[in-house]
Simulated assay, not measured.
Amino acid sequence: MAGLNDVPAPDRPMGRPRATTHDELEAIGMDLFRRMGYENVSVQQIADAAGVSRRTFFRYFATKSDLPWGDFAQEVDRLRATLTAVPDHVPLMAALRRAVVDFNRVSPESVDQHRARLGLILTEPELIARSLLKFQQWREAVAEFASRRLDMPPSAFLPELVGEIALSAAVAAYREWIPATTSDLPTLIDTAFAAILDLDALEHGAAAVLAHQMTLPVGES
């Protein structure tokens, strides 16, 4: 599209060292996306703002669309570790609920960036397409956990179903949380899993209780 690549890259603040790590480049790129719009920012602009070459950028990210995902492979490994840490005596779906809630906790100072990151991933067409591959890795980690509990191959129907259910619950919570700046992401995810665990109860008053829980400000229960 004409004009998009003509937007000048913001000057690198005087005194800021060149970005030489994955996290630094990610932070600079996310800042540009927030201020200028994802489509209006090029790899060259991110590299210029970071004071590095395009080659250095591509050393850390294969494409621009990978940047909002951060080090996603590391995050998937963290999800696996979180699932493994749940004691075996905890039932499958309760264990998954606990692990996914814990996995989605972020520090208070990281909440705004995490909300911006998910907002991009779930709304930008280029990133939505990329999410098909990225979320597949997430589902596979859950399916592997379910397969161990069910004594089935990860590719079997039931482990894959558990992976799909868990991802759907998380994504539904993300979509609710992104515009609701006073809401709490772990609470929304816990609510999503609570609904899934007893869908029939939603017809008998549980829906109103869960809806109220979702509207409580952060820190209240």
Rank of each mutant, 00 (worst) to 15 (best):
A85G: 11
A141S: 11
E203W: 06
A206D: 11
F103W: 09
T21K: 12
D198L: 03
V90A: 12
R54D: 15
P179V: 11
A208D: 11
E126S: 14
P179H: 10
D112K: 02
A9Y: 07
E24I: 03
D198K: 06
L118S: 02
S221H: 07
L92R: 12
L32W: 07
S110Q: 11
R148E: 15
D190G: 14
L185K: 01
A172F: 06
M93G: 03
G3F: 01
M14T: 08
D190V: 07
A156C: 08
R148F: 12
M36R: 14
W138V: 13
A211G: 01
R105W: 09
S53G: 15
P179F: 12
M36T: 13
F135N: 13
A73F: 06
V52C: 15
W138H: 13
F57N: 11
E164F: 03
A81V: 10
R115Y: 08
A173F: 05
K64T: 12
V90T: 15
S221K: 08
E160R: 15
L67K: 01
P17H: 03
S168R: 04
A99E: 11
A95N: 04
V162P: 02
E39F: 10
E164P: 00
E124Q: 14
G219K: 05
A73C: 09
Q45C: 10
G37M: 13
S53L: 12
G119N: 10
H114I: 00
I165C: 01
T215V: 10
A192D: 03
P8H: 09
A94I: 04
L79F: 05
T182S: 15
Q137P: 00
F103E: 07
G119P: 09
I189N: 03
W138P: 13
G119Y: 03
M1K: 11
L67T: 14
A166L: 00
G51M: 01
P68N: 02
M93C: 04
D23L: 07
A27G: 12
L216W: 12
A141R: 04
R12T: 05
G15H: 02
S155C: 07
W138T: 05
A19W: 08
E160V: 08
P186C: 00
M1N: 08
P87C: 04
M93K: 07
A195D: 09
R148G: 15
D23W: 05
K134P: 02
W138E: 13
V111K: 03
M214K: 15
E220T: 14
A180F: 06
A195K: 13
R148D: 15
H114N: 01
R78I: 09
L120R: 03
T181V: 13
A211H: 07
A169Q: 09
H22F: 15
N104W: 01
S131D: 05
A9F: 04
S107A: 14
A85Y: 05
A27M: 09
Y174R: 11
E160M: 07
E164R: 09
G51Q: 00
S155W: 04
K134A: 13
A85K: 02
L161I: 00
E140K: 10
D66H: 15
V86C: 02
E144F: 09
E126A: 15
Y38D: 09
D112P: 03
R59N: 14
